[in-house]
Every structure is written in structure tokens, then in C-alpha cells.
Amino acid sequence: MSDGVPILKIGSTLLVSIQVDLQDDTALRLQEDLAERITRTGARGVIIDISGLEIVDSFIGRMLASVAAISHVLDATTVVVGMRPAVAITMVELGLSLGDVRTALDVERGLAMLRPEDRSAEEILLAAAEREEG
């Protein structure tokens, strides 16, 4: 078993940057870790940066689609960013689609795609409490 992929949290967004060639079990663990982190932190958005990936085969493709579906159930939006052109061409030829996964050119555009009202429950409650006080 190799080391897991680190998940960063920025505000109400979780950020994962896959930098190395993923082993199947590592990919599965990432999927589980993400589901767990979304529930624990109440994150509203997940950004998966795959600009470091040299290939996306059916296994990784399915993992990305699963994460998107799982996050959707948990009321969060997943954006896959940074897919390389050669990888995209290969995926299309392979017949692989990412389903309803949203995509963006890079992390910055991915962040912009997550709507500002997608704030965490905590932030909204705090804002409401402030209004109450004021």
C-alpha cells in the first residue's frame, strides 16, 4: 500500500492534486477519504486537479465519476481540472466519459466555478448569528 493522496481544505472547498501515477488501491482510498472529508467538514465543493496525470484509464475515470456522484449525494459539487489534451483525446477514443462531472482548465477556474453561495453550513450559521446580534 502506498501513501495516500493529501486532501487540502480551503474554506468550504476540498482540494486534491494528484501528482503521481495512481495505483488502483490508492485511487479507491482517495475516493473513500473524500467522501469522509466532505461529511466531516461540510464542504460544498471538491476540486480534483489531474494536471499531473499522464493517463486516465477506465479505473481512474470511474473513480472520478464516482467521487462526483458521491459528492452530489452529499450536496457538494466536484470539478475535475487540468486534464491534459493527450489524456482527453485518449479518453474519448477509449469511449470513456466522466458523466456529469464538471470540468475546468485549471484550479483557479475550477474555484470560480463553485458558486459563492456554496458556503459551508458553519459560515451561513455564523453569518445569521451576526445578523441576529446586529
Binding site: E54, I55, D57, S58, R84, A86, V87, I89
Partner: peptide
């Protein structure tokens, strides 16, 4: 991948070959 680079395959051909190899190895 390393042999595909030695054979001077184009980047897209490399990616396709490596992806196919990954599927078949699995």
C-alpha cells in the same frame, strides 16, 4: 511509457498505448 518515448511515438500515441497497456494489465 519509457519504451514509447524511446520509439519516438507522438505524445498522443504514447498516451493511447500506455492507457491500453494499463487496461490490459488490469
Amino acid at each position: 511509457r519509457s519504451l514509447a518515448q524511446q520509439a519516438r511515438l507522438s505524445l498522443v500515441d504514447q498516451t493511447k498505448l500506455v492507457t491500453a497497456a494499463s487496461e490490459l494489465a488490469r
